[in-house]
């Protein structure tokens, strides 16, 4: 009788412990995602300045600029899903990267202090977003491990915890940069 009670008590305690630890890890994932969000917001806020500066010097990049402004507006809109936001960010990144390459054609713009500042801030934000994404992936891996490993796996299904996919680099970013493509812009 006592042994049975001890066993039930033990299972119960393990359950509580696992549950709390899973909740903690899930919150950590949410928290890590919001860090990415903050960094993205910071980067989106750079766009108007960037567009403004570039506009003064170039006449041929209007197409790209309009695209960038549109993307930014979409990303800023309320109630878009995380996946959509990540996708918009990827498109935005590749557009801005293309723009940065084309800047080579405008020596005046390249030498502009404002532009140089924006460029550094942009690289910094890229690095910060990369760091935030890595943090998110580390939290997701930690969370996934604990719901797939013993004893978490016993309770995870019952308590409705499901694995979360890690963020992957957009296929476009993973591609090796081809010089030919860059110059054919």
């Amino acid at each position: 009788m006592i042994i049975a009670l001890v066993i039930i008590g033990f299972i119960f305690l393990t359950g509580i412990f696992s549950y709390n630890s899973l909740i903690g890890k899930k919150n950590q994932v949410t928290n890590a995602f919001s860090a990415i969000d903050v960094m993205l917001k910071k980067r989106f806020d750079l766009i108007p300045n960037l567009v403004e500066v570039v506009k003064q010097y170039t006449t041929y990049e209007q197409g790209t600029l309009t695209k960038i402004v549109e993307l930014r507006a979409k990303a800023g809109a309320a109630n878009i899903s995380n996946a959509e936001k990540a996708d918009l960010d990827a498109q935005l990144s590749s557009n801005v990267r293309g723009l940065m390459v084309n800047v080579e054609n405008y020596p005046d713009l390249k030498a502009n202090t404002n532009f140089i500042n924006l460029q550094t801030t942009w690289t910094e934000s890229e690095e910060q977003i990369a760091a935030a994404r890595r943090t998110y992936n580390a939290s997701v891996t930690d969370y996934n491990n604990s719901i797939m490993m013993f004893p978490g796996n016993l309770f995870a299904g019952m308590l409705n915890f499901h694995p979360i996919p890690v963020l992957e680099t957009a296929a476009e970013e993973r591609k090796n940069i081809s010089a030919k493509e860059l110059f054919n812009h």
Binding site: A32, A35, M39, E127, Q128, A130, A131, A132, R134, T135, N137, A138, T141, D142
Partner: peptide
Amino acid sequence: KLENSDFDKTFITYGSDQVEARYILT
């Protein structure tokens, strides 16, 4: 916890801010 497994085998990293630690340790 860093994703470079060699690094994680050799060192233990502590940080006051998880994102910042990764911003530094690219």
